[in-house]
Amino acid sequence: MTRKQRRFGLIAGSLAVLGAAVGLILYALTDSIVFFHSPTEVEEKNIKPGTRLRVGGLVSPGTVVKGEKLSVQFEVTDGNKAITVAYTGILPDLFREGQGVVAEGVLEQPGRFYADSVLAKHDENYMPREVADALKKQGYWKDDYDKKPQVPMAGVTGAAQ
């Protein structure tokens, strides 16, 4: 083979691998990405039940209801609309009423969401960014969300005594 033929072979091979990669990426992007919506957007966009998505907002105080076998239900609000989230499992350490959460799962019916994972913040200072943006959009953002929460911790310490 001449040098030119070799180079052609190499380039053709590279293009084939790159093409395969592009194909894989496009296929995966149509299938395995998950959109984030605030409760208002879920309603406005008429998202069909059965769609997989992420919903975020603040946990409405007083709406957390615990059931049997680790099932729990709570409302997530962006200040305008609220959506009921049902979840079975262990909530993250930083899950509190009035705090930001992001739930990933499936919309069962309009206004009701079944989550298979619930994420809270990484530490006490910061709101999940999507949630902060969603709240700002609804004019519900207060500057003090960025600051240290004053609520004493219930839950763990209370139960231990």
């Binding site: 894989l24 995966a28 998950v34 984030f36 992420r54 990933e104 943006d133």
Partner: peptide, 30 residues
Amino acid sequence: GTLYPLALEAVTGAKITVGAPFFNLTFGPL
């Protein structure tokens, strides 16, 4: 997979997550 969500949000404002399924489908076979 890492930058697409950032680019999409910058351009259209849509917020998406690209998680394990995407990478399993693309990174895995390669």
